[in-house]
């Protein structure tokens, strides 16, 4: 029974993890995350890396779309920009990963600023359509600027290395990915403890009265675009050292949509939800694959259903959450918590 928990000072009340229970939960989670790579199979580690990279990108998107209300249909393009920038920094300039990945973040951040620049004049749905155009144009550039991007053959990159240690397996890359994910999730959560994050939410909820409260709309929106694409760029940089090759078809519109699905399913405007969403949206198709594989015993051509079923389940998941659980997994999570908070006396 966990009833009764009174904060002593305002500082306690401002902490990210406020209760002993939530701090204990965090400790358990961290311990599990540290043990995981030593016990998990290669396949699970591959999935974990993928989830981690996508979670970083989705955090960026949630900052822009969930918290600031600026819809982006081009987030995958920024991941791509970060990936190419990292790959180029690593191969042409010979930078080590701890410089090339941040370089990818910074270049994506600048690209985000450029795309965000018109956001003061172009609003709402029109802005969403503009980001869609950015997605199409960036993809085109990735494919056709062969001198820089290597065209459809792409760029190959050596594994990341540190003091002679090579991050040359999914198990080793795991530490890079989840170290950065932890850092960036902490940063994102911090953002919303301060005036910067409050301004983002205010712009989303009512931009005009936000302005009359002293918030510079232009600066705020550009800032959201830049932070968001920085996160995307870091995710792209990690992708480079995960996949070790960058090709244009890795960053299609459908990936942008997948990021949007993650923040919708997880919960718009929540950090925790973003993480839930990244896990859920990445793992559901894998679960479907497992089920279909099992079904081949009953019907040998079951595998041919996999591709269409993935489409249907993906779409139905988005529609279902929006119609029945518009606040996403984060809200389900807090309902469950509230239930156990008062357990065994649930109201």
């Amino acid at each position: 029974m966990l009833i009764g928990n009174f904060k002593e000072t305002y500082a306690d009340d401002e902490a990210l993890f406020r209760t002993p229970a939530s701090r204990a939960g965090l400790a358990v989670l961290l311990a599990a995350a540290l043990v995981f790579p030593f016990v998990a199979s290669d396949y699970l580690l591959y999935l974990a890396d993928l989830v981690g990279i996508f979670a970083i990108a989705a955090l960026g998107l949630n900052i822009l779309t969930g918290y600031t209300g600026q819809i982006s249909l081009g987030h995958a393009a920024f991941v791509g920009v970060g990936a190419y920038a990292t790959a180029i920094a690593a191969t042409r300039l010979g930078l080590p990963f701890w410089l090339s990945v941040p370089a990818g973040g910074l270049v994506a951040c600048l690209a985000g600023a450029v795309v965000g620049l018109p956001s003061l004049r172009i609003k709402g749905l029109y802005l969403a359509i503009a980001t869609l155009a950015a997605q199409v144009i960036f993809e085109w550039v990735f494919t056709n600027w062969t001198g820089v991007t290597g065209g459809i053959r792409g760029l190959n990159v050596e594994p990341a290395g540190l003091f002679g240690f090579a991050f040359d397996s999914d198990r080793r890359v795991y530490f890079l990915v989840f170290g950065l994910l932890a850092l960036l999730a902490y940063g994102a959560a911090n953002l919303f403890r301060t005036r910067v994050g409050r301004a983002f939410i205010a712009v989303r909820d009512r931009d005009i009265s936000a302005e009359l409260m002293g918030i510079d709309l232009f600066r705020t929106k550009i800032m959201a675009f830049m932070i968001s694409s920085f996160y995307a760029g870091i995710a792209g940089g990690l992708w480079v050292y995960f996949a070790r090759v960058v090709t244009p078809e890795s960053f299609p519109l459908s990936l942008s949509i997948q990021f949007l699905a993650m923040i919708i399913v997880g919960g718009l405007g929540t950090i925790k939800g973003t993480l839930f969403g990244a896990v859920f949206v990445t793992l559901v198709p894998e679960g479907l694959r497992a089920v279909t594989q099992a079904a081949t015993r009953l019907s040998p051509d079951a595998m041919s259903w996999l591709a269409p079923m993935k489409e249907i389940v993906f779409g139905a998941m988005i529609v279902g959450f929006l119609v029945f659980e518009p606040h996403g997994l984060a809200e389900i999570w807090s309902r469950v918590r509230r239930f156990f908070w008062l357990w065994p006396f649930p109201k």
Partner: peptide, 26 residues
Amino acid sequence: MLGQRPISVIMVTIGLSSVFKGLAQL
């Protein structure tokens, strides 16, 4: 979805398009 945020309404139609594509393949 009437009256929901634009992002939700956009995503609902994107979800539908995915369902339609899958159904047509089946």
